[in-house]
């Protein structure tokens, strides 16, 4: 079944330009211009993914995230024109899964949508492994193979990599990673940065110019690899 997407943005020009492309990609697309309309539509229909703009005319997008999730919405992707880290982190803490900065390229948006939909499917089967091109991760055996070569990861490194891989293509906040690695979101993010540097050294061709493990400044990290599952 094709994913159902609800576009929530008061900018009709944006909706008009996105709707045909998303439909052509096989998604079933609906749109809403206000928070009230979005809530009403989410109540009537179960959407797999909501693309939510934060600056709505009748409410701050952040305020309706929890409400939308309680209405059986499965995943929320934030469209942000403000580029304020604190706002993004707040939206992600509220339960949004990812964000994309305006203006964006359609390919970028489609990749984020695919990542979100894939994760919904993975969640459904509780995947035990991650497979993408040269990289495969076995979550049960805690084994990482890159270009047919097994790479040793310390337990903490593996915990962090697993969290990133389970959200492949999506942003993972500092808080989520600190919880995964240290069970404590108040730990200094300096430790996190050190571990990310170690993981990059093992995964990246050039760890100073990472291609896969990307930094989202002020928000978190993103493993920018599309899983084949």
């Amino acid at each position: 079944m094709n994913a159902r997407i609800l576009l929530v943005d008061d900018e009709t020009a944006l909706i008009r330009s996105l709707q045909p492309v998303l439909s052509a990609q096989g998604y079933s697309v609906d749109s809403a211009g206000t928070a009230a309309e979005a809530l009403k539509k989410a109540k009537d229909t179960v959407f797999d993914l909501i693309l939510l703009d934060l600056g709505l005319p009748d409410a701050d997008g952040k305020e309706i995230i929890a409400k939308l999730l309680s209405l059986n919405t499965l995943s929320i992707l934030i469209l942000s024109a403000r580029h304020q880290e604190a706002e993004k982190v707040a939206a992600l803490d509220q339960g949004a899964d990812d964000f994309i900065n305006k203006p964006f390229n359609i390919e970028e948006l489609l990749a984020r949508i695919r990542a979100a939909v894939r994760r919904l499917k993975n969640d459904a089967v509780k995947s035990h492994e991650f497979q993408s091109g040269q990289l495969s991760i076995d979550f049960l055996k805690r084994k990482v193979v890159l270009m047919d070569e097994e790479i040793k990861f310390s337990p903490k490194e593996f915990d962090l990599l697993e969290t990133l891989a389970r959200h492949a293509g999506q942003v993972v906040t500092h808080r989520q990673l600190l919880l995964a690695g240290w069970n404590d979101p108040t730990v200094d993010t300096q430790y996190l940065r050190s571990y990310m540097a170690l993981i990059r050294q093992k995964l990246e061709f050039d760890s100073s110019q990472p291609e896969f493990l990307l930094t989202e400044p002020g928000v978190g990290y993103r493993l920018d690899i599309e899983s084949e599952h």
């Binding site: 020009a13 944006l14 024109a81 580029h83 305006k102 203006p103 964006f104 359609i106």
Partner: peptide, 11 residues
């Protein structure tokens, strides 16, 4: 500035 740019870029 980004709001109209978003529609232009997407289109």
């Amino acid at each position: 500035m980004r709001t109209p740019l978003a529609a232009i870029s997407a289109s």
